[in-house]
Design a protein around this nucleic acid. Structure first.
Lengths: 289, 289
DNA sequence: TGAAAAGTGAAACTTTTTTACATATAATTA
DNA sequence: TAATTATATGTAAAAAAGTTTCACTTTTCA
């Protein structure tokens, strides 16, 4: 027969009535403040309950534990479970938050953003994007302002592959670069809002040259999303931050990570040697040269 | 001050690198199967780890526990938490993986990295870092290679605050910049390995000038971590990737996000107006000018 | 009411954990 | 490179924690 294990508190309540006076006192303590008791030694509990250590020892065995330590361990479990049930959802960041709380909120928001972004990715779109990348003559990253960081990251990643990649932080150069591309190349355009004026100028230039565009943006209705050949959405957690664009960066980067890994794995035999070589170079720069 | 306790696994990961060989063996056991270890006596663990009971005792104290029992107790906590989140283990990426699977793995690894990083952050360290930032004459970001992206991101974020920030991608300029700083300034040095030769040169220069250093690295035992005034660990999921440093970027950025939010919220009245203003400027560049 | 049963604490005993000490090994410095 | 210092680790003794025995008390119930 399968017996569902009761929690420590359950056992205590269940057997409470069959306990002796001294043992009831002990049980009472454990029921009232399991967390405190879980941290006590057998002596401490004995003195707190006005009983002898021997009584405690017998008491826990009566409850079905092999020894005192097992008992305190289960009590601790109870505490954790309780604490977790009490954990509430994360709200907006407030000025009263302690540093630990702020860190938790930031991290969990980032994680939620990643989850949302991952959920929203369609395999179909990804496949189209990867194909464009693999077959492109040159892969060009475009991003301005906050998104320039993601674009730079994309460049850093893909430069390790056998693909020909290009990126320049300056807007004018990006625009000129866009003018030079053809339908055989591929452009990765990153913009949180998808409607930044300069970015759209670049997109127009690319469109004029029939360059395939992989757009990474947070808004599916934005000009960038509408103009792109393939749109990959970098979603952010619904939580409102003082500076919203900030949190799509991590999602943008994760999308680039994915594209990178896919590119590497897909064109494996072609890319692997280059990747290895680049990694070796990096390794060599560590410590004394 | 209320200190948010790090989880046992967080502490383990955080200090892992600075442990001795024997202690690493012990940590490994605890990381691999916390539930088993949590039920072991010190003798059992000692024999399982091929160490003496004395080593175990010292080991737990180094992690910050008062005694062995406290350690096993916390490990038990972890078990409960882990079990509740449901196991979501991902293996190494394989060439046979479909695109959807690759995306899932990448995203979940990033999320796991964020979780581990968050876990390993101690409120104490964060507080010290934020204080250094807020009171610094100028805040300077240093990062080379892959970490230059995180450094640039840090610059982008903090430039919105009322703090004076600086960053330049070029190594020589970074080095010169480091030479100009004083004890009144603050340096944020980012390096995945924490031992890149050029980065260490910068660190030495900073040390010579007594500049407070906030180090962001993945290895607690690295030269950067040892030299830094405050070290914040950007952990990565244990899963092995073809290109390991790649995945600490997201953790690095999340740490910077946290520092940014804290700085903003802490020095609220001083920062808020600037932040608003910068945001307005950004807003104005959207759509037709 | 009085024998058996159950409850209890003191103390002996066992096990577990910590600390002190000695030795080996690595790192540092003169 | 030798000397010195710091670090790492195990052995063993001390301390602490936990369990069991046993004698004594209280309760139960025929």
């Amino acid at each position: 027969m399968v017996v569902i294990a009761r929690s420590a508190l359950g056992k205590l309540r269940g057997k409470y009535d069959s306990l002796s006076t001294t043992e009831k006192r002990i049980a009472q303590l454990a029921l009232n403040s399991p967390s405190t008791v879980s941290e006590m030694t057998i002596r401490e509990l004995a003195s707190a309950a006005g009983a002898s250590t021997a009584s405690i020892s017998r008491f826990v065995k009566r409850l079905g534990y092999a020894n005192y330590r097992e008992f305190t361990m289960e009590l601790a479990h109870v505490v954790v479970v309780d604490a977790q049930e009490g954990a509430k959802l994360f709200k907006e960041l407030g000025e009263g938050d302690s540093l630990g709380v702020i860190a938790n909120k930031v991290f969990h928001s980032s994680m939620a953003s990643l989850e949302a972004t991952n959920d929203a990715l369609s395999e179909n779109d990804i496949a189209r994007a990867v194909l464009k990348l693999i077959n492109a003559g040159t892969v060009n990253f475009f991003g301005l302002g906050g998104s320039s960081i993601a674009a730079l990251d994309g460049y850093h990643k893909f430069v390790r592959t056998s693909l020909n990649v290009a990126y320049h932080p300056d807007y004018d150069i990006q625009l000129m670069q866009a003018a030079k591309l053809t339908a055989d190349d591929c452009a990765v355009v990153i913009s949180h809002s998808g409607k930044n004026y300069e970015t759209i100028q670049i997109v127009k230039e690319l469109k004029a040259n029939h360059v395939p565009i992989i757009g990474i943006t947070s808004y599916s209705g934005s000009p960038l999303a509408r103009a792109a050949t393939v749109t990959l959405l970098s979603l952010t957690d619904e939580i409102k931050y003082r500076s919203e664009g900030m949190y799509s960066l991590i999602s943008q980067i994760a999308i680039l990570d994915s594209l990178f890994m896919m590119t590497v794995l897909r064109s494996s035999s072609r890319t692997q040697p280059v990747l290895m070589h680049v990694r070796d170079v990096i390794e060599r720069t560590r410590e004394e040269p």
